[in-house]
Design a protein around this nucleic acid. Structure first.
Lengths: 204, 204
DNA sequence: TGTACATCAGTGAACGCGCGTTCACTGATGTAC
DNA sequence: TGTACATCAGTGAACGCGCGTTCACTGATGTAC
């Protein structure tokens, strides 16, 4: 990754990584082209050889985030093994772990206000991640008697919303927004109660 | 609210309202002092007679938001009448209604990245709103046998996170983030399943 | 009731700043012969 | 292997812009006498 003379070598990706650091530090709107260029050790004009503009770089960051997100979730889901329930719970934990480990990606994906269709790549990547979540929900909800089964898209939306809400409200370092519970505890207990409500976990 | 000559009459509140419109339209970071002043029909320097700076105006907007939020939730809770369950569900609906009706407030409160302790007023107002939510959770959870009862702060956090997640992911006009369900449907069904999991609603 | 004066909410011009972006350029790289 | 040349990833200077904020000012308001 070291700069090697006049030509950088891999400036495009270096800019993405600079943006990730800046976004993680100051939020998606705190990130600027000029600073990303500086971080990458390059003049302010150089980024325009690789990206049409600020939004374009942001969209690339988000795209890469969704790809990694989908990878992580898919790995956690593990084709529903060893059991749909265990796999589902692993996906939930993976969601939180992703938000914690890749805050720059997460913020670019969910807090930058980019239209998901901004770029074809972005649309494709975000759809892929959603598909994994929906599949996890479908696999698990196949265990519920059909007449009591909520639509799997709704199931997935509930869990996604709960996870995202926990990340936004309780997993950030904001002083003052404190609960005595860790995000992981909150998600685990919340999902547990929810699944019990669907009859997917024994009562008590 | 009409400007009456050299002196405005109620510039402070007019600026708050201008900020609300701007925030609702372009997000908390899209709002600028200069534009708020212009919207209020006043020179760019005038706001500094009433607010120490941009952050200070933002904090005032958020404070007023939390106050109204607390009012709305308290009204919906209605001291737990006619029943703890009905009151609790009304609070959930009120949460969504608030986010929809007062987007500028909501964004200033939850998306501006203000530390809750930024201003004493802000801290006080946000605490008040949280207290209402916690009280609704406590009242309802008193119906659960103590040994199976989750801490009420956890209960409240689950519902708050679900509500916030639904607002952020599904209640905004973002094209592309579509579910076939309305935010209201999602919250109602999600909370319903959750409460069933706690044994607070009959199975089926 | 009329006048002098203190108060203070506004004005308008100015500042320094950092941003996104453009443009003519230059230095490095790779390839054809 | 050596040279000429096309390509293209960088540079650096410059632009126009809008922002947050300051400052000396001025006009309106209210009050003491």
């Amino acid at each position: 990754m070291a700069k090697r003379g006049y030509h950088h070598g891999n400036l495009r990706q270096a800019l993405v990584e600079a943006a990730l650091d800046l976004i993680a530090e100051k939020g998606p709107t705190g990130f600027t082209m000029a600073e990303a260029a500086k971080t990458a050790g390059v003049s302010a004009a150089a980024p325009y050889r690789h990206f049409a503009g600020r939004e374009d770089l942001l969209a690339e960051v988000a795209s890469q985030g969704y790809e990694r997100f989908a990878d992580v979730l898919e790995f956690a889901f593990n084709d529903g093994q060893p059991s749909p329930l265990a796999a589902f719970e692993a996906v939930g934990r993976a969601y939180l772990a992703f938000a914690r480990k890749y805050p720059g990606h997460y913020m670019a994906m969910f807090e930058a206000g980019l239209a998901p269709g901004h770029t074809p790549e972005l649309a494709k990547a975000s759809e892929r991640a959603n598909r994994v979540l929906r599949r996890a929900a479908e696999t698990l909800s196949a265990r519920i008697p059909p007449e009591r089964r909520p639509p799997s898209a709704m199931f997935a939306a509930h869990i996604t919303a709960l996870s995202h809400g926990i990340v936004e409200l309780y997993a950030r370092g904001k002083p003052g927004t404190r609960t005595p519970f860790t995000p992981e505890e909150l998600l685990e207990t919340g999902v547990g109660i929810y699944l019990r409500g669907l009859g997917l976990i024994e009562r008590d």
